[in-house]
Design a binder for these strands. Sequence first.
DNA 1: TGTGACATATAAGTCTGACTTTTTGATCGC
DNA 2: GCGATCAAAAAGTCAGACTTATATGTCACA
Lengths: 233, 233
Amino acid sequence: MSTTGRGLHGQVLETLGPAITAGEYPPGSVLRTDELAQRFDVSRSVMREAVRVLESMHLVESRRRVGVTVRPKAEWNVYDPQVIRWRLAGADRPQQLRSLTVLRSAIEPVAAGLAAKHATADQCAELTECALGMVAHSRGHQLEGYLVHDVAFHRVILNASGNEMFARLGDVVAEVLAGRTHHEVMFEDPDPAAVTLHVQVAEAVRAGDAVRAEHLTREITVGALQELDILAP
Amino acid sequence: MSTTGRGLHGQVLETLGPAITAGEYPPGSVLRTDELAQRFDVSRSVMREAVRVLESMHLVESRRRVGVTVRPKAEWNVYDPQVIRWRLAGADRPQQLRSLTVLRSAIEPVAAGLAAKHATADQCAELTECALGMVAHSRGHQLEGYLVHDVAFHRVILNASGNEMFARLGDVVAEVLAGRTHHEVMFEDPDPAAVTLHVQVAEAVRAGDAVRAEHLTREITVGALQELDILAP
DNA sequence: TGTGACATATAAGTCTGACTTTTTGATCGC
DNA sequence: GCGATCAAAAAGTCAGACTTATATGTCACA
């Protein structure tokens, strides 16, 4: 899946990045470039490039005479897809999953509403196709096939919203959905009510009914929140 | 304002980053590290570090034997604060402002609803203080003072939501609001209705009324959308 | 005892030059 | 035409020397 880091600096990042996002180095920890270069058996220039990338993600700060200090989590660029992947792969996975699901619950309904207004005929067609695919794979433990269409569905919605920032969340949503199927054990077939909702969203978008599309999608995301026990008592 | 890029590579980035995000180099354009190093009069190692950062933002892709190619806008890390700043400062400003405002309209109401549930007593106090500050500066062309309290208000909401990803949007919202006051000419005093809404949101959060806080905040963001002529006819 | 100026050590930052590796595209033989 | 081979181009890597900023300790003086 994740392309094994391009170049030496990429390989270093794939070890160091997850280590930092997993909290192995508490905030304020100081690393030295030279020591890291030795540890990873790379030249200083390669290690410097890796540190620059971590710095651009606000995971660390590099200062003269002091070294490379790890920044507190509150300052990380938590929307960086790389950071999200690292956190999802490590000890921070539960919290990352929760905050991403809340994010989805805010974005996707609005995106669906916009999609109802902006979706092209092609996108509408693709959407119904995805929904039908979900229905077709909703019974008999065809979880993989279901996932493919589910991911595609939400991707189309986000793209059809016409908002570039919404569209860029497609990968993130894909990883959340994939995680639900793969990591969190999913024994049973998907909830039939959820499948129906997807079909109805596709219909609403096709009909240009923004209010309905938004409302239905909100129901979907409420379901996602409930799966993680995020709800109002 | 923006700290003049730390180190030589930072200075290079402050020229090259805005140039790319402004579309000066169309997607597919090929740059060569050596040529860039000459152009900016820095060593290759410094230029390589700058390219690495651009690469981590998905603005460019570096491949052997071909060079550093500019990626299409659809692949950029549009949530990177640096990228957002560059786009807001350049030719892409209008579109960036619109997509950010739509993003706000999705996030902030949900954040306000969560804030009503999670806000601490301190945060509630700070919130009312901000709202009162807005009222106090809402008449007589005290736009700067109004802005300060407006920004603080939305920051508190986002932080009080308890969602780390929402909280990280504080800086972005601040820049959007500041832009509205500074760049977009704002002759008159702020809309009294908007001021009232902020006060009411503070009350709702204090009262723990999530539904009301969400609804009121949605009205605020609708106003922001209307300012940019983003509406449903 | 506290405070300021000064010296020193440290780690990042920068530059240079040589070398390696990958990949494109052209050439050549079939 | 087509596949294998080869050469050039650009990024990638490394090593070493040098520069610069700065945290910290020292010492003199109040």
